[in-house]
């Protein structure tokens, strides 16, 4: 399906892309990291988190859903966008009940890693302290809804990769929440090996008896910031 390759620029750097690629896909391939939270390369993009908002041809646009086009001018790494992305992360910290200090995902958590990347020291907003349940009914998996950021990775993965439709959303606005088919995990078709479990970016969907196995210092984001794997491609190519 590949047609004529074309180029566009990101912060002044020329990026090559092929038809059908989104801005974020083309940038990933080129070793330019656009911060993101709900996006996952194996899933259809849906634009929930807005962390990948860039200024594209003068307009704020979500890079995960925007098709790349010839001659596009993209601003990505600017102080103004970093401030805006930090505000989005602060909103998510205020919305849920996030306790990094005892969370199994700490060190591997993409929400936390983005907080580090953007230099979030304290949420700028009062916590909303919602009342959310923990579902530990399944023998191998539990869900702590306090940590859900409504990224829909599990919803999408369960449908498109696991073929199960275990997850969905319910409600709207600030009351929107993740729902499990059958009401509880043990009544759903979920299994610990499901992609829906693996792709949770935070500590919301957790495989039991696997927590805290990686020592402090060797976890995904202990030494280097999130996105380093992507930027390494470009830096590596230069060497």
């Amino acid at each position: 399906m590949s047609g004529e390759r074309f180029t566009f620029t990101v912060d002044g750097v020329r990026v090559e892309a092929e038809p059908g690629q989104t801005v974020i896909e083309a940038c990933d391939a080129a070793g330019i990291y656009i911060p993101r939270l709900c996006h996952h390369p194996e899933l259809p993009p849906v634009g929930h988190c807005r962390v990948c908002t860039c200024i594209i041809d003068g307009r704020p646009t979500s890079a995960c859903v925007m098709p790349a086009a010839k001659g596009m001018v993209v601003e990505n790494d600017t102080p103004a966008l970093t401030a805006e992305r930090r505000t989005l992360i602060e909103m998510l910290f205020a919305e849920g009940n996030h306790f990094c200090q005892f969370c199994e995902a700490s060190g591997d958590c993409e929400l936390q890693a983005l907080g580090y990347l953007f230099g979030m020291v304290a949420p700028a907003f009062p916590h909303l302290w919602p009342k959310r349940p923990v579902d530990a009914s399944h023998p191998d998996i539990y869900i702590d809804h306090n940590r859900c950021i409504l990224c829909s990775r599990c919803v999408r993965a369960s449908r498109t990769l696991d073929g199960k439709a275990v997850f969905g959303f319910e409600g709207r606005g600030i009351d929107m929440h993740l729902a499990v088919a059958g009401g509880h995990l043990d009544e759903s078709a979920i299994a610990a090996a499901d992609k829906a479990v693996e792709m949770c970016p935070v500590g919301c969907i957790v495989v039991k008896r696997t927590g805290y196995r990686t020592p402090y210092g060797r976890r995904r984001y202990d030494a280097a910031p999130i996105g380093s794997d992507i930027t390494a491609k470009r830096l590596g190519a230069k060497d």
Partner: peptide
């Protein structure tokens, strides 16, 4: 200076907020 998770976010004692 606010030092540590409890000062900044309530921390473990804030579990009672739930």
């Amino acid at each position: 200076v606010a030092v540590g998770a409890c000062a900044i976010s309530g921390g473990v004692p804030a579990l009672r907020n739930l």
